[in-house]
Simulated assay, not measured.
Amino acid sequence: MFTKQNLLATAAAAVVMFLLGYLLWGMALASFLEAHTLTDVMKPDEEMNMGFIFLGNLFGAFAMATLYGKWARGYHGIAEGFTFGALIGVIIGLGMGFVWLGTSNFMDVTGHLVEAATDIVYYGIAGMVISLVYKATSKKEAA
């Protein structure tokens, strides 16, 4: 669990998730999602805590890297990594998204569907990064 391979994959994915999250939700989709938000629960920009946001990304990346190491069984590639991450995105974006849609007034249906599609891409990219680090740090077979 705390192997060099897993920790490097965790670090790389945490940085990518932090930066990509800012690009996707903080910039590209901010206005769109705001228009589909029903209840304003977000903190103002000046009250957001980047340390906690990064810590959340770090824990998420660690969980993903640990699960990926067991799921991949030594087959590391971009397609495998994206598939793994996209499945995580389906769990979060569609699984939790529909639960939130059924239990809260956070966003409308369109907002949740766009959020789900974004989660699939976001976690797919994180999975690719994890896979590439695993591939780059795996022991090479003697020919």
Rank of each mutant, 00 (worst) to 15 (best):
M1L: 14
F2C: 10
F2Y: 12
T3R: 01
Q5I: 00
N6P: 05
L8I: 00
A9K: 11
A9V: 03
A9E: 04
T10F: 10
A11F: 14
A12V: 11
A12D: 07
A12N: 10
A13P: 04
A13F: 02
A13G: 03
V15N: 01
M17E: 02
F18G: 07
F18A: 04
F18N: 01
F18L: 08
F18S: 07
L23S: 10
L23P: 00
L24P: 11
L24Y: 09
L24T: 12
W25R: 12
W25V: 06
W25S: 05
G26F: 02
G26P: 11
M27F: 10
M27I: 13
L29K: 11
L29A: 13
S31C: 00
S31P: 00
F32W: 11
L33A: 06
E34P: 11
E34H: 13
H36W: 12
L38D: 01
L38A: 06
M42I: 09
M42S: 06
P44N: 03
D45Y: 15
D45L: 15
E46T: 10
E47C: 05
E47I: 11
N49A: 12
M50N: 09
G51C: 08
F52M: 15
I53R: 04
I53N: 01
G56C: 07
N57G: 08
N57I: 02
N57D: 08
L58A: 04
F59I: 12
F59M: 13
G60Q: 11
A61D: 05
A61W: 04
F62P: 03
F62A: 11
A63Q: 14
A63Y: 15
A63L: 15
M64N: 04
A65T: 06
T66A: 14
T66V: 14
T66D: 14
G69T: 06
G69F: 08
W71S: 09
Y75D: 15
Y75H: 15
H76G: 09
I78V: 09
I78Y: 07
G81F: 10
F82L: 05
F82W: 09
T83L: 12
F84Q: 02
G85Y: 00
G85S: 03
L87G: 01
L87S: 10
I88P: 06
G89L: 04
G89Q: 03
I92E: 00
I92N: 04
G95S: 05
G95I: 06
M96F: 09
M96Q: 10
G97A: 06
G97D: 12
G97K: 01
W100A: 08
L101K: 04
G102F: 13
G102Y: 13
F106E: 08
F106P: 10
F106D: 09
M107Y: 12
M107S: 08
M107G: 05
D108S: 02
D108A: 01
V109Q: 14
V109M: 14
V109L: 15
G111I: 08
G111R: 06
L113T: 01
L113D: 05
L113H: 02
L113V: 09
V114E: 01
V114K: 01
V114F: 00
A116V: 09
A117I: 04
D119C: 15
I120K: 00
A126V: 04
M128F: 00
V129W: 03
I130V: 13
I130R: 02
V133N: 07
Y134F: 03
K135M: 12
K135C: 05
T137S: 14
S138H: 05
K140E: 13
K140H: 11
E141H: 12
